[in-house]
Structure formats: structure tokens, C-alpha cells
Design a protein around this nucleic acid. Sequence first.
DNA 1: AGAAAATGAAACCTTAAGGTATCAATATGA
DNA 2: TCATATTGATACCTTAAGGTTTCATTTTCT
Lengths: 73, 73
Amino acid sequence: MSAVLHNRIRVFRAEHRLSQSDLADIIGVSRKTISTIEVGRFVPSTIIALKIARHFEVPVEEIFALEQLSDSP
Amino acid sequence: MSAVLHNRIRVFRAEHRLSQSDLADIIGVSRKTISTIEVGRFVPSTIIALKIARHFEVPVEEIFALEQLSDSP
DNA sequence: AGAAAATGAAACCTTAAGGTATCAATATGA
DNA sequence: TCATATTGATACCTTAAGGTTTCATTTTCT
């Protein structure tokens, strides 16, 4: 199941002038969660992805994208 | 972070005549993973959600939807 | 420059995701 | 009807997500 998850959270945060803490509070998670997702260390749950996308009013695919690796078609 | 994640995987599987095993193989996860997600017992990772949506050629939001509960805006 | 805000990271902990294997019940089809 | 496929569930295990807290570094703003 090795795939890399790219994200553009930082871009959307910047556009909306939100700090990681701001977004974390809005979404209802900890700042660490936003930070680790943003840096690409953790893969968020679908619930978190949907909440972030919903807040920025874009589809999930505009924020998160798969980068194909070796396996998993 | 209590939210319920609705999904329409079964509908898309039916339309595409795929068994849980079929989809599991295509996505690269176990059948149990598809089953538990479909039944709503587990919340899948964003990677799995993207892979499922990509296979059915629809946005994630057409397959997975948040159902608001008490907290978490 | 100096204070305050923002960010990345680390340690530590708890719980959920996801894997394998197996079984029973239900569909499906020849 | 009988065989096969499909599905839901269970038990057990491993690892990653996500939380809290804290610290150092970097940005940002006066």
C-alpha cells in the first residue's frame, strides 16, 4: 500500500491567511495533526481530508493527490 | 473528532459488477478492508479513499460523505 | 532590535486501521 | 438441488494516526 500523498494545505492556508492552529481549531484536530499532514509525515483519515476540503470549498482531489510508487495499482 | 462517514462503495461496486475481493485487489488492500469500510466500521485513510474514487472515476465526495454529529465543526 | 507568533520536531501514550486467517450465513448459478 | 461465490464477522497482531506537552528555530510585526 505504499503511496505518497501530496497535499496543498499550506497553499490554501496561505490564501485564506490561516495559521496551522487556526485550521486545526476549525477542523477540530490538534495543531500537530495539521502540521504532520502538511509536512507529509502522516496520512490523514478520510474524515479529516473531507473536513479540510469542505472548509476550503474544493474537492478533496484539489488538496490531496496520490503520487504513484512501486506497487499498488 | 466524532463524525460518521457515509459511503456508497457498494453502489459503485454494483454498477461496475465488482465483488469486494475484486475491488480490494484493484485498490491493493485486503477484502476485509473494503468490507469494514463499506459497512462503516472503519474510516479509511485518504490514500484508500483517493484510490477508490480514482478507480470509479468520480471525486471522493461522491463516494464518501460526512454526516455531522455533535462536535467538530 | 526585540517581542510575539508560527512552525517543526521529539517524547510518550492510546486507540484505530489494516493485515491474515477462519467460519457461518447468504446469494448466485449450473 | 448442489456447488460455488460472496459477504459479514471474529480473533489476533502490528503499525500508524492522532493527542498532549514541550522546546528550539524561524517568521513576522512594531
